[in-house]
């Protein structure tokens, strides 16, 4: 079963990211539990995206450690996680080729690639778009493609940067449904959002960032009812700029 082989929880310790002497990120301790829906909140410039990218391994931290429970190689860590970016990167190819390319990069064989691509497209209602050029899809379709593409890689851990930003309510709804499906499959989700409604409906755990610091990590229900910090309280009451 997934649980016994999972590399999660992921524990971040004393993570610091500095650039030109400025501290961009400061996370003394964060724990991302297996199968949880983790939502990262905070005003603009709080370091939410940086935190995702650093955890995902795109940005090397200045200091600190990102530890997995199972002793696994870097390549394996890479294979078991995926990320969906705020502005989804659409290859200049068909929708299907966007899947097969990602799978090829992950080392999946020629025929297997096609099978997984078709299967994933069917699961997420993208089959009708399979031969369309990815770059002419609507914003919502592109976001769904990006999430499905990441999901097709079979990750244990999926990072999503603002998956519903700049989407209309219907498209946002579809994205949320996809995330539910993934959660039910046992994928651990870590996402940033500006959408407090989404966070309330969706989150198991909230990480609250302010000025690059992780200042509150708590159970979602507690966070929304009795936030510990002044900043979080202000944020929930829309008193913080964001």
């Amino acid at each position: 079963m997934r649980d016994t082989t999972s590399m999660l929880p992921l524990i971040v310790r004393d993570l610091r990211l500095e650039m030109d002497g400025r501290i961009l990120l400061d996370v003394p301790l964060a724990r991302i539990q297996n199968r949880q829906r983790n939502v990262i909140l905070g005003p603009n410039g709080a370091g939410k995206s940086l935190f995702l990218k650093t955890c995902h391994g795109l940005i090397p931290p200045t200091s600190g450690r990102i530890e997995y429970t199972l002793p696994v190689s870097t390549a394996e860590v890479r294979r078991k996680q995926a990320m969906v970016f705020q502005k989804p990167v659409m290859l200049r190819r068909s929708v299907r080729a966007n899947f097969t390319h990602a799978l090829a990069m992950a080392g999946v064989g020629w025929y297997e690639r096609r099978r997984i691509a078709d299967e994933t497209m069917a699961q997420f209602g993208l089959s009708g778009l399979a031969d369309s050029p990815a770059r002419v899809l609507s914003g919502g379709e592109q976001q769904r493609l990006a999430i499905a593409r990441a999901a097709s890689l079979g990750p244990d851990l999926l990072f999503l940067d603002e998956p519903t930003s700049s989407l209309d309510p219907t498209a946002s709804r579809q994205i949320e449904d996809m995330l539910d499906v993934l959660h039910e499959r046992g994928v651990t989700l870590v996402l940033t959002t500006h959408d407090l409604g989404l966070a309330r409906r969706f989150a198991d755990v909230i990480f609250f960032f302010h000025n690059g610091r992780l200042i509150e990590e708590s159970d979602a229900e507690r966070f929304f009812t009795q936030p510990e910090t002044e900043e979080a309280k202000a944020f929930l009451e829309h008193r913080l700029f964001w």
């Binding site: 795109l58 294979r79 970016f85 290859l91 190819r93 390319h101 990069m105 890689l153």
Partner: peptide, 20 residues
């Protein structure tokens, strides 16, 4: 970001980039 996320380094990305 996408290529790095997929585990493809700069050299391995060359065919993808040339094609796209």
């Amino acid at each position: 970001d996408h290529m790095t996320s997929l585990g493809a380094g700069r050299l391995r990305s060359i065919p993808t980039l040339l094609w796209d």
